[in-house]
Design a protein around this nucleic acid. Structure first.
Lengths: 190, 190
DNA sequence: TGTACATCAGTGAACGCGCGTTCACTGATGTAC
DNA sequence: TGTACATCAGTGAACGCGCGTTCACTGATGTAC
């Protein structure tokens, strides 16, 4: 069966998008290539016509996820109150419930790092995220505050997904949200 | 072979301690029962004389890890500057390098939560940790600040272990440490 | 216009491997007589 | 004191399963003549 010129490229893209979702939602280790390909109506053997190994796909999917997040955040950072919008979005119930469409830092990067496979792509994601945040902070303690702010966001999301009690989970998101927004306002008295 | 009266109980404890270390260091999924038992000079078949399933051991090992952390933090919180000591210890290079002996929240709990297996034990660990922190914060915003502080600690550790560049990793720990300590001081003017 | 051939994305069986779990068994010891 | 038996922590082969990876193959299409 011959296919249109860009057919293979489009299949490759479909695999990457599906992987980016599943790696974030179910975990890298827990996502089998067989299941992944089947979900796209393909068989697992064809995988290696597109990627050298699962590890290569992990790296590419992490970049894809980061790119998706970058687009979303750029929209948020274009609003009137960029940091508030970003904090609200990051610590929302939607983000907690949809890891497959969310930030890869608390999911893919955390899993890779925990296994001792820290990926350079994670560095790029972290740096990009930090730059966006720091640009919107007043100069004085921007660097330190930027890092601490990102850490709070990632940690609160991880914790909110880890606890079984929904009330506690809501409190983790809500209190962190309130505290961070207050901090950001206090340090930037316009 | 007959054994001393407490022999089985001591073997059980050895399994729990080894599991608590490996689950934190290598991950729950990546730790096979065969490897775990072999590391103790035992064979894997005997595992089920001690535990109903791997899942049961995971729960027990998480409690063990939390208990170990509890002891350490109690010592820290007995010092002159309890919160500073806790922050320094949590965000130290030693804690980053030794997940197997550290806080289970960025490791076991994060992994379980990411797989959608949020464990009630995690709730207990989070609540315990929060109480310790809040007790040492001034009343006004203690609740919100306590949650945000814990989130920062967990997030900074996760991120510092996820990035490949050591300099960036150090910056994540160092800047978060500096910022949090400054925050704690500003909010509690003695 | 008709036929032979090349292309190549995708197929699916097979590989060795480690997983969690089960279970009939071992064998050193303590107890009963 | 000597022998038969019960105990039971630990042994190790076996189960079905899904993993990542390999590879000979398929078959619809475009091209060459």
């Amino acid at each position: 069966m011959r296919y249109s010129e860009d057919h293979k490229a489009r299949t490759r893209q479909r695999i990457i998008r599906e992987a980016a979702e599943r790696f974030r939602r179910d975990g890298v280790d827990a996502t089998g290539l067989q299941t992944l390909m089947k979900a796209l109506g393909l068989t697992h053997g064809g995988f290696y016509a597109h990627f050298k190994s699962k590890d290569e796909l992990v790296e590419i999917a992490l970049q894809e996820a980061a790119g998706q997040l970058g687009e979303v955040s750029e929209r948020l950072f274009a609003s009137d109150d960029p940091l508030d919008a970003f904090i609200d979005s990051y610590l929302s119930a939607e983000h907690r419930a949809g890891p497959g469409r969310g930030c890869p830092l608390p999911t893919i990067s955390a899993e890779l790092g925990a296994r001792g496979h820290a990926s350079p792509t994670t560095d790029a994601v972290v740096r990009e995220r930090l730059e966006m945040i720091e640009k919107n902070l007043p100069a004085e303690h921007a660097r330190e505050q930027g890092v601490a702010l990102l850490a709070s966001l990632v940690g609160a999301l991880v914790l909110s997904r880890s606890v079984a009690d929904e009330e506690l989970s809501d409190r983790i998101l809500g209190d962190t949200r309130a505290y961070l927004k207050r901090q950001v306002k206090e340090e930037s008295p316009a």
